[in-house]
Design a protein around this nucleic acid. Structure first.
Lengths: 227, 227
DNA sequence: CACGATGCGGAGAGATGTTCTCCGTTTCGT
DNA sequence: ACGAAACGGAGAACATCTCTCCGCATCGTG
């Protein structure tokens, strides 16, 4: 592949990530083209239709997400700092985009199953380890972690986006939320609605791995959390 | 105003709130019409253009928000539970919608200044009280509170929305985040980047009150939070 | 450095979606 | 039961989006 073609591809994927994140998976490809600063023909030559673009983007993001999880585990010996590091890295990757877009529309083929399995097991390992070390409330599960990441790493709507142009607010609020997930000092918390949430999440995403990781049948539905 | 007209108005405002929340302030009015289950003519008769609809929605939401703050203060004698109660009520009101939509586009007239002043002072009072009571980290400000509410009360993207059809997850995650905002037991925290954030937020929204409430010139920019 | 091959951007035709109005029918309040 | 007010649907005018053709620029190699 020629160097300029590779450059275009990268710019299109980055632009698509932002645009899908801001305007949902039905955002006009025209908008992607404009943000990427390339001509329409360039996009359509590389990605014959929307599905091809979405698929490439998802694979790209999940791959980088897995790499980030492994890097975090390697760089931080203690489980909780590793999880923390990973969550921040995931936010930088705009992990939310992959999920938003993965949900509907994509038919899962083997490649997709492979990358998504890699990502889920890597993240699950980090979470389990931090929890076994007693650094997370026991009622928190994969579902909570993923949903908080999605919520907090999405771009702010409209003019608010300008408040966090450099992304530092995302990290500030992730830290605040992580403080909330940390084990309460007195150790008194709920059972584990977070597990059940993980299973529901898996079902919604078609992620068999998340369902399995969430373990045995748990509590009914997650409600408010004890203060 | 005739009873059926009032009913239509209400249905349109509720539908508009959801639609703007999901698809941004440029969402087609057609979508609002469909969700409200009324004919297009009904919307255009009541609200001559997009601006009129947006304005009416914002006034409606800010009014109810102020009422919620006052109700919370009345119902809970202690400041922190009052704040907590209010935050949950604000999430139910989809407070994010007002803000998303307010930001750009609307020219502020006197009515708008009045309702928004009421809302800001009511919320500020709750926050200040909880903080003076030592129940919130001192480095948390209006900006953090508002942005967390916006982030956590927005509908989840795409298929994830189905996970939280009844809104109970919103409350679960608000609780988790509030736990993160609560005063650290050892009392050791940063100075107060949250104040500065409040001022930036005020500027972004054109909310002079938020700027004033945020107090004297503070720290430069909010970064990560000490663990 | 020159040439062939590959990739690029812009203009634009056709399809799709959105805005907004007219008008015959229904619903409301007295 | 009657007049006034509101309603929904059909559709014209307009805007936006999708996708292709083609002449020019850029890349990699001999």
């Amino acid at each position: 592949m020629r160097a300029d073609a590779e450059r275009s591809r990268r710019r299109i994927l980055d632009a698509a990530c932002e645009v899908f994140l801001e305007r949902g998976p039905d955002a006009p490809l025209d908008a992607v083209v404009r943000r990427a600063g390339v001509g329409p023909a360039t996009l359509y030559r590389r990605f014959p239709d929307r599905e091809a673009l979405v698929r490439a983007l998802v694979v790209d993001l999940l791959t980088r997400l897995t790499a980030a999880a492994e890097e975090a585990r390697r760089a931080e010996p203690d489980p909780y700092p590793a999880l923390r590091r990973f969550v921040h890295a995931a936010a930088d990757l705009r992990m939310g985009a992959a999920i938003v877009v993965l949900l509907e529309r994509l038919v899962v083929d083997e490649e997709l199953v492979a990358v998504r399995h890699g990502a889920v097991t890597a993240v699950e390992g980090l979470l389990r380890a931090a929890q076994d070390a007693g650094r997370l409330r026991p009622d928190v599960g994969m579902g909570d972690l993923v949903l908080l990441c999605v919520r907090l790493s999405r771009p702010l709507p409209g003019a608010l986006a300008a408040l966090d142009a450099d992304g530092s607010l995302v990290h500030r609020h992730l830290d605040l939320a992580l403080a909330g997930l940390a084990a309460a000092p007195d150790g008194a918390t709920d059972r584990d609605p977070g597990r059940e949430l993980g299973r529901e999440l898996g079902r919604a995403l078609g992620f068999d791995e998340v369902i399995a990781a969430a373990g045995r049948p748990g509590e009914p539905a997650p409600g408010r959390v004890a203060e």
